[in-house]
Amino acid sequence: MDEPIWLKFIVAFVIMNVLLVGMAYMTYFERKVLAAFQDRMGPTRTGPKGLLQPLADGAKLLGKEDLIPGSADKWVFFFAPLVVFVTAITSVAVIPFGTSFDVAGQTINMTIADLNIGALFVLAISSVGVYGIILGAWASSNRYSLLGGLRAAAQVVSYEIILGLSLVGIFILTGSLNLGDIVAEQSRTLSIGPFEISNWFILSQPLAFVLFLIAAVAETNRAPFDLPEAETELVSGFHTEYSAFRFSFYFLGEYIAMIVMSLFASTLFLGGTDGPGSDSHVLLGILWLLLKTILFLFFYVWLRATLPRFRYDQLMGIAWKVLLPLVLLNIVVTAAVRLAVNS
């Protein structure tokens, strides 16, 4: 924490812009992967292999007319998309992109805000993100939007619990809520007989990993949990009435939330920046983190290409009747094992 505040701002600025470009190309990635799943080509016309498609989409959205329904609550309608966008992008602040390195006499910390409750911070911010959806839905004064907003509220509150509780096992094993500590704990190499394996939490907390993955998909409102926007039932749900750049804030927010969730999952379960050569080279560590993140993003797209959508009551039933007992079981077992090892 010795670095001056201006340096922190520069790091934050760089990471934010990388994230925005990453989001733009996440849409390209999704379209291409989805196209491959569905025996199609995906975008090919804009630029070589359609690589400029995200930019064209952005320009198009900027140029569209910004429609506001006559009966909408204007102020709430204005700022609701921003809530989604800002909260999505804020939570990246606590993700450790590596330890620190020295450039021109300055120590650059690769975590923007090294909070001692980093993991909880991500959860807190993502739970605030749902306000963007609920308020946007309410402000549109459209019944499809309202139903989408209600679904979003119930869904996010339920799956937030699963998401948070699935991490408790990790907190018990690490003894810290700091994401840096969690990565450091996973960087240790365990020797079991002749084998040397990394202490990634996916190995010691497999059940928690699966539960986290399910809850993370639900938390980001993606298929098969995309009920708030279910386009075949609710005609896009909460953002039915949004257009132009206001709509794209929702879009940006959703994709950035996916990227952040993937980064978060990689950090918590797949060792974050840990990987061969990551101790000596910071950039190699970032590369490993990105590879793991892309794995999760691919998983998101894979789900979307394969699975039908849950029904509202089934979604809630799974959260409360299946996932919650499992996640509590995981906590009890982890705590018992930890207690037995300690004593």
């Binding site: 807190a124 739970s127 605030v128 749902v130 306000y131 609920i134 308020l135 309410w138 209600l150 509220a153 119930a154 996010v156 509150v157 937030e160």
Partner: peptide, 10 residues
């Protein structure tokens, strides 16, 4: 903010 007020808004 994340849970109780969401339900209130609900």
């Amino acid at each position: 903010t994340g849970a109780i007020l969401v339900l209130l808004l609900f």
